[in-house]
Design a protein around this nucleic acid. Structure first.
Length: 875
DNA sequence: ACCCAGACTTGGAATAATCTTA
DNA sequence: TAAGATTATTCCAAGTCTGGGT
C-alpha cells in the first residue's frame, strides 16, 4: 500500500496523459502514410528533424531521466489507427523495448521525429507525497463565480506564481519558446495543490499557486440547512483555516494541511479556478433550478412542429440487372438510389452492408413490383452505376449554379424553414435544434455494425408524437392528408417531438438548440457537479485503493474499475445488444482487451464508443495491477473482467459517495481539471496567434486523455508535402539573402544582386473558357520557377532577412501543429468536457479575444460562462 | 434483482460556409 | 477569383443514466 500511495493523484492524471501520448506516438510511427517525417517530405523533413534534434539536446537529459515510479515504458505502444479507425493495427510496430530503463528512450525519439517525446520526468515532488491529500477545496469556497476578473494591471503574460520547482521541473524549459507540439508534450507537472506539506518543504520554491487555495474571497456564512452529511464536511470550508485543519484531519487522517501556503496572495482575482467553489457556497444558482427529477420543466411550450424531407421524385433511371435495364417501381427506385449514393464509399465492400441492403431492397420489390422481385435474385448481378451517374450529374448541376442564384435559393429556403427554427418556452423565444426529420436512407452504423445497409424508412406525421403546451396551438401537419400520430403535453420533458427509429427501434427527439435554457442550464449544472467532485475525490481515491484489496470480489471489481475510470478517463461501458457493434467501456472490458507486462504495466486495446480504438499502455498502481491480473485469471479471453459489476451498481455506489455522482462526471472532472492546470503555465507567447497555438496544445492534451480521435484527413500528406516545399523555398530565399548580406559586408558595398526563383504566373485572358483557365493555372503551377535578379540595398536585405525568419518560424509552427493534430479531434472536449469558464478566464488573463477560442455557436452555448465572468469583472 | 424504455449527452463524419492564396 | 484549405455547422449514431415494471 505504501507503494501505491506514493504517487500523487494529480500525477496520476498527468502520467496517464503522458502515457497516452506515448501511445499515439506509436500510432504515428506505425502508420505508413502518416509518417511524414523524414522520408515523405523530402527536404521539408529537415525541419522536423531539426526540431527534434534540438529538442532532444535541449531537453533530452531531463526528459529522459525518468524516475522510477513513473517510468512508463512507452514500450509497447503500438499504433492506433492507420487511417481507418477500425482497422486493427497492422504491424503494430513496437516503438520501444526499453521498458524500465529510462535510457533507451532517447533513441525512440530519433525514430519518431514528428511525434514525440513521450515521457518526461516526474517532478520529484510529486513522488514524494505519500499521504492522501487534503481536499484543498474545502478551504476555499470561492463562489463559483469568482471567476475571471479583469486583471488590474501588469503584463498579462506574467504570472507571479509558478507551479513547479525549478529544479525538478523541466518546466522551465518547457515553456515553450516555440511551440512545437512536441515540446508541449511535456506537461508541466502540475503539482497537486493539495499536496502534503512535506512535499512543500522539499520544494521550497514552489509557490502556492495551487488553484485550490484561495483566500481572499468573501466567505459565505449561511448554508443550506438540508446539506447532506457528506456535504457538511465541505461546508466547513467556509470556516477559518484553523477549523479547516480539523476537518481535513477528519477526512483524511494523515493529511496535513498546506493551506497556509502564504502565497495565496498571488492568485489573481480574475482567475477562474475549476476546482474552486462547487455548489456549497450558498449562492443561488439559476442553472440548478428546476433540474430535479420529475418536476415540470416548463409551463407553456409552443412551436411549429417538424419539417419533413421532400418526397422522392422518381426519375426512371434503370437498374441494370444481368445486363438488362429495369426501370423500377418508384419505391424501389428510391431505395436503389440510396445504394447508388454509397457506391463511392467503402461500405459497398462490406458483406454485411450488401446483404442487409439487398434483403431490404428485395422486400421493397416484393411489396411493389412482383415481376421485378422474381427476376432480381442475385445481388452480384445488380448494377447501380447508371443511378450513380445520375446522382453525380445532379450534384454537378447543383454545383454549377452561379453564386448569386445560389444565394437566392438559399435565402428562399431559409424563409421557408424559418418558422420551424424557433419555439417559445414560457414566453421566451428559443432556437430549435434539429427540426428536420431524418430523411430515409441506408443506415450507416459505425464500426462493424450488424445492421449497416438496412433501409431506414421514411418517417410520416403519423409516426410523430408532438409535445406541446396544453394551451398552445397544435402545429399544423405539413403534409396534406396526414396527421400527427399523437399530441401530448408532458411538462416533465424538454423535447418537442418524438419518433421511433425504424432500424434500432430507439427513440429520436427534436430538442431545443444548445443555447436554449433547457440545454445551458443542465450544461452548467454538469460542470458544477464536476467541480464538486473535487471535494470528494480524495476520499474516493482512498476508498478505491483500499477496495482493490478487499475480500469481497464485488468491492474489488468496483474499486479497480473506478480506478480505471478515474485515472484513464474511461467511459463506464454499459452492456450492449446483439444488434450493435461490439464496443466496450470500462465495465464491459474483457480479458482479451488487456495485456499485462510486469511490472505493473497494462496494455489496453479495445474498441470504444463509435468503434474508436483505445490503445494505451499504462503503468498502473501496484494494487490495481494485481487486482486486474487477479480478475483476469482463470477467465477466457472473451470473459468480462468485471463480471460481477454493473454500471448501475457502480453508479449506485458513486451516488452514495456524493450526491449526483456518476461515472461520467469523472471524465468531465479530469478533463476540465487538466485543462485548468495546463493553462496555468501561461508562458512566453507573444501574440494572440501564439497564445492560440498554446491553448490548442493544451486542448489537445485533454483530447488525448479522452481519446478523441479523428481519421487522418484525406489530403493530409499531400498538404504537408506542399507546406514542406514552400518551406524549402523560403529557406532557399533566406540563404540567398544571407549570402547577399555577407557579400555586401565583406565587399563593403551597400547593395547587391539578389537572385530569386519565382513561380510563373498564369496568363489568364478574358476570352478563355473555364477549362482553358484551369489548364493555364495548372501549367503555371507546374512550370519551372523563373529566375529574377534584383538589386537590393543593404537595409532592405536585412529587413527581408528578419521577415523571412519570422515567416519560417510561423511555418514551422503551423506544420508542427498540423502534424500534431492530424488524428486528434479537439472539438469534442471543447464542446462537452471543458468548463468554459476555464477558457474564459484564460482568455481574459492573456487578453485573447473570446471569439478566437469559441466559435459563434459555442459562444452562445456558453453564454452563461461569459456572463459569470462579466459580472465578476463588473463587481 | 434484473430488464428495458425513455430522456438526454456525447461523438465523429459529412457538409456548408468562410477564409487564403496564387 | 476560383481552387484549395480551414473552420463552423449539421447530421445522426452511440453512448450514459434513471426509473418503472416485473
Amino acid at each position: 500500500m505504501e507503494v501505491m500511495e506514493d504517487r500523487d493523484d494529480d500525477e496520476i492524471l498527468l502520467s496517464a496523459l503522458r502515457k497516452k501520448k506515448g501511445g499515439n506516438d506509436g500510432v504515428e510511427k506505425a502508420s505508413g502514410g502518416g509518417e511524414l517525417a523524414v522520408n515523405d517530405l523530402g527536404k521539408g523533413a529537415v525541419v522536423r528533424a531539426e526540431t527534434v534534434v534540438d529538442r532532444v539536446e535541449r531537453n533530452g537529459k531531463r526528459v529522459f531521466e525518468d524516475t522510477e515510479d513513473d517510468d512508463v515504458p512507452l514500450l509497447s505502444l503500438k499504433k492506433i489507427r492507420t487511417g481507418s479507425k477500425n482497422a486493427k493495427p497492422k504491424g503494430a510496430a513496437v516503438v520501444s523495448n526499453s521498458i524500465g530503463k529510462g535510457t533507451a528512450q532517447a533513441e525512440d525519439v530519433d525514430d519518431l521525429p514528428l511525434t514525440s517525446l513521450k515521457k518526461r520526468k516526474e517532478p520529484v515532488l510529486v513522488k514524494k507525497s505519500s499521504t492522501l491529500k487534503r481536499p484543498s477545496s474545502l478551504e476555499d469556497d470561492r463562489p463559483l463565480s469568482s471567476l475571471a476578473r479583469k486583471r488590474s494591471s501588469g503584463s498579462p503574460n506574467k504570472r507571479a506564481v509558478s507551479v513547479n520547482h525549478d529544479d525538478d521541473l523541466p518546466l522551465s524549459s518547457l515553456k515553450k519558446k516555440k511551440s512545437s507540439g512536441l515540446e508541449q508534450r511535456k506537461i508541466v507537472p502540475l503539482k497537486n495543490p493539495s499536496a502534503p506539506k512535506k512535499v512543500i518543504k522539499i520544494v521550497k520554491k514552489l509557490k502556492p499557486q495551487s488553484p485550490l487555495v484561495r483566500r481572499d474571497e468573501p466567505r459565505i456564512a449561511s448554508r443550506k440547512s438540508d446539506t447532506p452529511v457528506e456535504k457538511k464536511t465541505v461546508v466547513r470550508k467556509a470556516k477559518p483555516k484553523a477549523a479547516l485543519k480539523s476537518k481535513n484531519n477528519r477526512l483524511s487522517k494523515a493529511k496535513t494541511s498546506n493551506s497556509a501556503a502564504p502565497s495565496s496572495v498571488d492568485i489573481r482575482k480574475e482567475e477562474y479556478v475549476f476546482v474552486g467553489g462547487g455548489e456549497e457556497d450558498g449562492e443561488r444558482r439559476w442553472w440548478q433550478e428546476n433540474m430535479d427529477g420529475n418536476e415540470h420543466r416548463w409551463q407553456s411550450l409552443s412551436h411549429h412542429g417538424v419539417l419533413f424531407p421532400p418526397l422522392y421524385e422518381p426519375v426512371r433511371v434503370p437498374l441494370i440487372y444481368n445486363g438488362e435495364e429495369i426501370v423500377l417501381h418508384p419505391a424501389a427506385e428510391e431505395v436503389a438510389m440510396f445504394y447508388a449514393a454509397k457506391l463511392a464509399t467503402d461500405y459497398v465492400k462490406k458483406d454485411v452492408f450488401n446483404k442487409n441492403f439487398f434483403s431490404d431492397f428485395k422486400q421493397t420489390l416484393r411489396k411493389n413490383d412482383r415481376e421485378t422481385f422474381k427476376r432480381v435474385k442475385d445481388f452480384r448481378k445488380c448494377d447501380f452505376s447508371r443511378m450513380q451517374e445520375h446522382l453525380e450529374a445532379k450534384k454537378a448541376e447543383k454545383k454549377a449554379i452561379p453564386a448569386a442564384e445560389r444565394k437566392k435559393i438559399r435565402e428562399e429556403e431559409a424563409e421557408r424553414v424559418k418558422k420551424y427554427t424557433v419555439a417559445s418556452v414560457d414566453g421566451k423565444e428559443e432556437k430549435v435544434g434539429n427540426f428536420r426529420i431524418e430523411p430515409p436512407a441506408l443506415f450507416l452504423g459505425r464500426g462493424e455494425h450488424p445492421l449497416m445497409g438496412k433501409v431506414k424508412k421514411r418517417i410520416w406525421p403519423e409516426d410523430i408524437t408532438i409535445n406541446i403546451g396544453p394551451k398552445d396551438p397544435v402545429p399544423e401537419c405539413p403534409i396534406p392528408g396526414h396527421k400527427w400520430g399523437k399530441v401530448i403535453h408532458n411538462k416533465c420533458v424538454t423535447w418537442l417531438a418524438f419518433w421511433r427509429d425504424t432500424i434500432t427501434n430507439g427513440s429520436k427527439y427534436v430538442w431545443l438548440a444548445a443555447d436554449s435554457k433547457f440545454k445551458t442550464v443542465s450544461d452548467a449544472a454538469k460542470f458544477e457537479k464536476a467541480r464538486k467532485l473535487h471535494m470528494y475525490i480524495e476520499k474516493i481515491r482512498k476508498d478505491y485503493r483500499t477496495g482493490w484489496k478487499s475480500e469481497d470480489e464485488l468491492v474489488r471489481q468496483r474499486s479497480v474499475a473506478l480506478y480505471l475510470i478515474d485515472r484513464l478517463a474511461l467511459r463506464v461501458g454499459n452492456e450492449k445488444g446483439e444488434d450493435e457493434a461490439d464496443t466496450v467501456g470500462c465495465c464491459s472490458l474483457r480479458v482479451e482487451h488487456l495485456t499485462f507486462n510486469d511490472p505493473d504495466v497494462v496494455e489496453f486495446n479495445f474498441l470504444g464508443k463509435d468503434s474508436i480504438r483505445y490503445e494505451n499502455s499504462v503503468k498502473v498502481e501496484r494494487g490495481a495491477y494485481l487486482g486486474l491480473k487477479k480478475l483476469s485469471r482463470k477467465k477466457k479471453s472473451s470473459d468480462d473482467i468485471f463480471n460481477r459489476l454493473t454500471t448501475s451498481s457502480l453508479n449506485e455506489y458513486l451516488r452514495s459517495l456524493m450526491d449526483g455522482l456518476t461515472a461520467k462526471v469523472f471524465r468531465t472532472y479530469n478533463a476540465s481539471l487538466t485543462l485548468d492546470r495546463l493553462l496555468q503555465q501561461d508562458g512566453q507567447q507573444q501574440n494572440v496567434n501564439e497564445q492560440l497555438v498554446f491553448y490548442n496544445q493544451q486542448n489537445k492534451e485533454v483530447a488525448i486523455l479522452c481519446n478523441h480521435q479523428r481519421s487522418l484527413p484525406k489530403k493530409h500528406d499531400e498538404q504537408m508535402g506542399k507546406l514542406s516545399v514552400k518551406y524549402d523555398e523560403t529557406i532557399e530565399w533566406l540563404r540567398e539573402l544571407e549570402r547577399a548580406a555577407t557579400e555586401m559586408k565583406y565587399g563593403r558595398k551597400d547593395s547587391a544582386d539578389v537572385t530569386q526563383w519565382v513561380h510563373v504566373k498564369p496568363d489568364l485572358k478574358a476570352e478563355m473558357t473555364e477549362e482553358q483557365r484551369t489548364a493555364e493555372r495548372k501549367r503555371a503551377a507546374e512550370a519551372p520557377r523563373e529566375k529574377v535578379v534584383k538589386r537590393m540595398k543593404a537595409d532592405s536585405v536585412h529587413l527581408a532577412i528578419a521577415r523571412v525568419h519570422a515567416r519560417i518560424d510561423k511555418m514551422k509552427s503551423e506544420m508542427q501543429t498540423k502534424e500534431d493534430l492530424k488524428t486528434v479531434a479537439l472539438g469534442t472536449s471543447k464542446q462537452n468536457y471543458l468548463d468554459p469558464r476555464i477558457s474564459v478566464a484564460w482568455c481574459k488573463r492573456n487578453e485573447v479575444p473570446l471569439e478566437k477560442v469559441f466559435s459563434k455557436s459555442l459562444y452562445n452555448k456558453f453564454a452563461w460562462a461569459m456572463e459569470v465572468n462579466k459580472q465578476q469583472v463588473a463587481g
